[in-house]
Simulated scan of single mutants.
Amino acid sequence: MATLPKSILWTRTDTAGAEHAVLDDRGGLRARGVALAVDPIPYTCRYQLTTGPDWVTTRVEVEAEGAGWQRGVRLEAGDGRWRATASEQGDLDAALRAAGHPPAGLPGADDPGRLVDAVDVDLGGSVLFNILPVRRLGLVSATPETARRVTVAWVLVPSLTVVAAEQVYTALGPGRIRFASDTFTADLDVDADGWVVRYPGLAERVAPR
């Protein structure tokens, strides 16, 4: 497995947890990451992400694991559509019920055709994936109040269910990007390359500074 030249670490601010990614963002993005959290139940989530030179996502692989269960999903873009492959071992629903939470959906996409308009992928609880539309659409240097609506293949965690979701990214000026999805809104602090420094209510970057 090839080494990657950059490393970013975020700590969660909404719950106990963190995210660490190693990456290469020269000519697109290649990234491998690990996210850990205790909500809704303790889990470890590992991902691999690849885009083209235009920052359009071409492949994402995600694995999530906790006590007594493990799930995986792979999304591949090609020929104007997404291919989704999922796997499951153990019983995530039993772990969720024991913690007082409702059962999860099945991993993967029940109808990948519903993802046909998605260009980007978003991973629940991950800060890294916000970079995809920000860099692809050039929002770091965009005129303030420039807004772009995107459709994403949203991978829920820990279930790894994949659904289509609409999101809006708005440039607010140097170092600020507004993220909105449904009724949720957050003003993200980003660095000169678009990487999230602070995501209110979710995470803050601790390295590099």
Score class of each variant (00 low, 15 high):
L160N: 08
V168D: 06
G33C: 06
V121E: 08
A104I: 10
L29Y: 03
R71Q: 08
E61F: 02
A31K: 04
D39V: 14
A35H: 09
A164G: 05
A153W: 03
A171Q: 07
L23T: 07
A98G: 14
D120I: 06
F179Q: 10
V60D: 04
Y43M: 14
G201S: 02
E88I: 05
T183M: 03
T161F: 00
V162F: 03
G105A: 12
R46Q: 09
W154Y: 15
R135T: 11
V56W: 05
E63I: 10
E88Y: 00
G138A: 06
R74P: 00
I41P: 01
T161P: 00
H20R: 12
A16W: 02
V157K: 13
A84W: 01
V197F: 00
A95R: 10
D111H: 06
R59I: 04
F129C: 14
D93S: 13
P102Q: 13
P102R: 09
V190Y: 01
A164Q: 06
R12V: 03
A164N: 03
A186I: 04
R136T: 05
P133M: 05
H20G: 14
L156A: 15
Y43E: 11
A21P: 00
R46W: 00
E76F: 00
L172K: 12
D117G: 02
T161S: 15
P133R: 09
A109Q: 07
G72S: 12
R114I: 10
A86M: 04
H101Q: 13
A118L: 06
L92D: 07
W82N: 10
A35N: 07
I8K: 09
D54I: 05
A104P: 02
A37T: 10
V196G: 02
D54E: 13
G124R: 07
V162M: 07
L23V: 11
A77H: 15
T143A: 12
T146F: 00
T3E: 12
V152L: 08
A207S: 14
D25R: 04
D54M: 03
V162E: 08
P42S: 05
A147I: 03
R26L: 15
E61K: 08
V152Q: 13
T57E: 08
E76P: 00
V62T: 09
E61T: 14
D110W: 05
T185I: 13
P102C: 08
D39M: 14
R135E: 05
P40M: 07
L4Y: 07
A192P: 00
